[in-house]
């Protein structure tokens, strides 16, 4: 439980930084220009270095984790997605993994309700919450593109319209606002309530959830309670990406808290568990063919070992062998 409290206090501390910096010290220039730019640079450089560190670690074996029959004899039916042997299988497997999180369906648990026997069934609730959470975040990111693109691509407007489907209140309460809050609550409660998950939860696990929760909450507050002049915000967002920084005038501290937390999230991204967004593409248990029995895989760090073949040995001792009537092989082979 102490880890949960650490993470919570750390998040509160992060929220207090911009409140103090902008609200009391009035450092608007620092918080609207220096912080976002440095966060973006850290994000960009950190992510690239992280990927480079991954791809520079040698792969001694092929280690795909499979859940299906591998290809062997023609009359044995093989499972080309669960145990892929070629690039098409790998592509299908990765696509399903990235878009539908199939690995999470294999997060099995015993289910005493299904039958009187010990039966393992997949934990579909966790999969559902997880997939809703990720897609909500994706739509939220897409919705924000309206602030960064001029003219706004029609797909962004379309997504916003779909998100505002129910037209409740003005400004409309969005579907993703509610879904993402429910999902974060579920993911947090799961780490608190389920004793096994609580046991393996680290401070950083809670912290990431608290950080996302605070980002989402400040975003919702900005939309429904502490509104800002959104035209000014768009001018600011466009200015950042066109290297023509503009300090927004008609925004409150809530905007700066949101901006600071998002900046922190970006800067923290390459050094946290959140890099699974990039890591999923490079996970060797998913993106390798299960063909180590048909194609020999050479360990890239194999040390050049000094060897001495039998033929070389025979060349040296042939005469002595003949004298002792020991059969020789190399000479016989030539005849």
């Amino acid at each position: 439980m102490i880890r949960l409290i650490y993470a919570f206090v750390l998040t509160l501390f992060l929220i207090l930084i911009p409140l103090f910096g902008v609200g009391i010290l009035g450092l608007t220039r620092f918080f609207s220009i220096v912080i976002p730019y440095s966060a973006f640079l850290i994000f960009l450089a950190g992510s690239i270095l992280r990927v480079l560190s991954w791809v520079s670690s040698p792969q001694p074996f092929k280690i795909p984790l499979t859940a299906g029959q591998q290809r062997s004899l023609q009359w044995i039916k093989s499972s080309y997605i669960e145990s892929p042997y070629n690039k098409i299988g790998i592509f299908m497997r990765m696509l399903l993994e990235i878009l539908f999180f199939r690995s999470l369906l294999k997060n099995e648990k015993t289910n005493p309700h299904v039958s009187k026997w010990l039966l393992f069934t997949s934990n579909k609730r966790f999969w559902l919450m997880s997939i809703l959470f990720h897609y909500s975040l994706l739509i939220i990111v897409f919705r924000h593109l309206k602030l960064f693109f001029e003219p706004i691509p029609s797909i962004v407007n379309l997504l916003s319209r779909i998100d505002a489907l129910f037209e409740i209140s003005i400004p409309t309460i969005l579907l993703t606002e509610i879904i993402v809050l429910v999902c974060i609550a579920y993911l947090l409660l799961r780490r608190i309530v389920v004793s096994q998950v609580r046991y393996i939860s680290l401070t950083s696990d809670y912290f990431v959830l608290f950080l996302l929760l605070s980002v989402v909450l400040t975003g919702i507050l900005l939309r429904h309670l502490f509104r800002v002049d959104i035209m000014d915000v768009k001018r600011f967002a466009l200015g950042l990406f066109l290297f023509n920084p503009y300090i927004p005038h008609f925004v409150g501290s809530c905007f700066y808290v949101h901006l600071f937390l998002v900046s922190f999230l970006f800067a923290y991204f390459p050094f946290s568990k959140l890099v699974h967004a990039g890591g999923v593409f490079l996970s060797p248990t998913r993106n390798l063919e299960n063909n180590s029995r048909t194609i020999r895989y050479l360990n890239p760090w194999n040390y050049p070992v000094k060897t001495r073949t039998y033929d070389e040995w025979e060349d040296e001792f042939r005469e002595m062998m003949k004298e002792a009537n020991i059969p020789v092989e190399k000479e016989d082979r030539k005849i």
Partner: peptide, 14 residues
């Protein structure tokens, strides 16, 4: 956002 707005050239439009 940078190259999109550079291509459309409307980034400074207010």
């Amino acid at each position: 956002p940078t190259w999109y707005n550079l291509v459309f050239g409307k980034g400074n439009y207010v």
